[in-house]
Amino acid sequence: MAKHILAALVENRPGVLARVSNLFRRRSFNIDSLSVGRTQRENLSRMTIVMESDAAEADRLVKNLYKLVDVVHVDHLHNQPSVARDMALVKVKASSENRREVIQLCDIFRARIIDVAAESLVVEITGEEEKLGHFTELVRPFGIVEMVRTGVIAMGRGSHTLKDQGYKPNRGRSSSRRSVL
């Protein structure tokens, strides 16, 4: 068992997110996180999928993703040097007495405070999953009011890029196409 990070370029067509998430359920893949967003190409979105599994299982997911017509390319980022980032917004309880302590902790983690209220702070923190884990453990004693994470996004280092297979939107797909999101 290991952590596998897959990156997939998908056509920005209606239902593509449903297709991918249905695949997880239909073929019993256990996914840690899935994040979807736009890319520099108008008609392509990019998904980052993190799963805890053995290599065979990750390979099975790659093949099944490829079976989806809307999936243009899939990469197993495990197989090359890559960078991965997760982001969290954490609302931490902070009264006038302990606010300073929380702020210090944020400084150490290079987290940013983006909202200050009488009883709480909203902290934005970005980094590898592990770093976010450590941070939340350390602020937990203060009291986490709420938290949200984006899920991991990842990219190969240097010259490694996700191939778009010479992607051309094959028919000037009109703007009437609803987006994935």
């Binding site: 209606p14 239902g15 449903a18 297709r19 249905n22 239909r26 017509v69 028919r171 797909r173 009109s174 009437s176 196409r177 609803r178």
Partner: peptide
């Protein structure tokens, strides 16, 4: 299209006559 998602190779909900 939702119902048949797992039992089709692919499916389409046509969103514009131009397509």
């Amino acid at each position: 299209t939702g119902i048949t998602l797992p039992i089709t190779k692919h499916n389409y909900l046509v969103t514009s006559i131009d397509e």
